[in-house]
Nucleic acid binder design. Structure first.
Lengths: 216, 216
DNA sequence: CCGAAAACCGACTAAGTGGTCGGAAATGAC
DNA sequence: GTCATTTCCGACCACTTAGTCGGTTTTCGG
């Protein structure tokens, strides 16, 4: 008996993806399991064959989202050779989350942070389950930095700080994204990030004058 | 008749403050009006004498929160003369939001952003009502920068970028706060922010070598 | 084609929500 | 003290939610 594992996995993923679409538009609570079932094209009962609780669905959706996100990043970064341009691409892609207003990622970011912060949030007691996935982005940036260092584009002395720099960089990008959305100053985002990038580049480039680090 | 306006205002504020406590710990939905009434020590019906809806309570609580926050900032900053130290105090105060683990601000920040992003969020269509309050912090930082410039501590050429720098600075601090809480790397926050401050100071100080901008 | 096992389903339950409303309590001018 | 007016209240209502469960449908080895 036992239907082929592939089939099962596929449906499980279809549910997670449907859930992701709803979580990222409605928010956790308002994305009801009934609605998720409808969106996924399955019965409500079926969902509980694959997941024990709504929390589990959310975790799965979050993982799905982070995977997709990082894959998109990776694939765009792989087309770029220069680490400097790669860093700027990371910034630009984050800016584009709000610039042509793709609120899906913004909302999901907020939702994940929220569920991780609230004491009875879905992720609160299960952050360790997410750690690997969450650190993926940071690893990507660290790698860019290390490549830059080995090519003598970035100062050698930042080597011991790569993880701190990467974390700061990503935290900054998230912060600016959230503020940007809230204040509706979308049009200024690019300039702000550009200014920040200039400073950052000025600080880590071996030869700051050759590249001025302007965004775009 | 009509009880003294003062009395009314006081109760209205007590409700908002009770609501703030709950919103910032439970989140919007889980902070039920029943619970808010209990926390404020009034009947549920009474709440609706002062506010038309739960949304209104949330807006009031948010304003209350931002006021308190900015007052705290202002009062601590007023004890400091040197703009450089003032900037660092701003950073330090933000770090302390998570360092002695007082997640109230973090949670409220996320909650406000969330309600501003979600289409059926409480603030979604009413962001303009909040704008002034929200820009308060930025104004404070801008003022610090301008003072620093007029005292020749900061480079004169940053004058045209003060608002951008201030916005970036605050966005960064929020981003690092949220990431810090989420990743539970509290102990590294101070170092990260310290590194960032060093870079920032290096970039805006007229004489970067005199002050190295280390946090703490 | 048979039939047991697996997969699927949606009506139902229990719990929790925001908001209402009729009546009780407090107030203060007279 | 009286009593009109304001203030307060919590039982109640209509609605939404996550999760269950008994029965139906699909699957597939023999």
């Amino acid at each position: 008996m036992m239907r082929k594992g592939k089939q099962k996995e596929k449906k499980e993923r279809r549910i997670a993806q449907a859930a992701l679409r709803l979580f990222s538009t409605k928010g956790y609570r308002a994305a009801s399991v009934d609605r998720i079932a409808e969106e996924a094209g399955v019965g409500k009962g079926t969902i509980y064959e694959y997941y024990d609780s709504k929390s589990d669905i959310f975790l799965a959706a979050t993982k799905e989202w982070m995977m997709e996100f990082q894959e998109k990043f990776q694939s765009r970064l792989s087309e770029i050779e220069d680490p400097v341009e790669q860093l700027q691409a990371v910034a630009r892609m984050n800016v584009e989350l709000i610039e042509p207003l793709d609120p899906v990622n913004a909302r999901m970011t907020v939702e994940v942070i929220r569920q991780g912060i609230l004491e009875d949030g879905v992720i609160f007691g299960r952050r360790n389950e997410m750690r690997d996935v969450m650190q993926g982005m940071q690893k990507i940036v660290e790698k860019i930095l290390l490549t830059g260092i080995s090519r003598k584009l970035f100062k050698a002395e930042i080597a011991r700080d790569v993880s701190s720099i990467a974390a700061n960089f990503l935290a900054y990008l998230d912060g600016i994204m959230l503020h940007g959305i809230l204040s509706e100053n979308h049009f200024q985002i690019k300039e702000k990030v550009g200014g920040f990038m200039e400073i950052l580049m000025h600080e880590i480039l071996t030869d700051p004058d050759k590249q001025n680090g302007k965004l775009q």
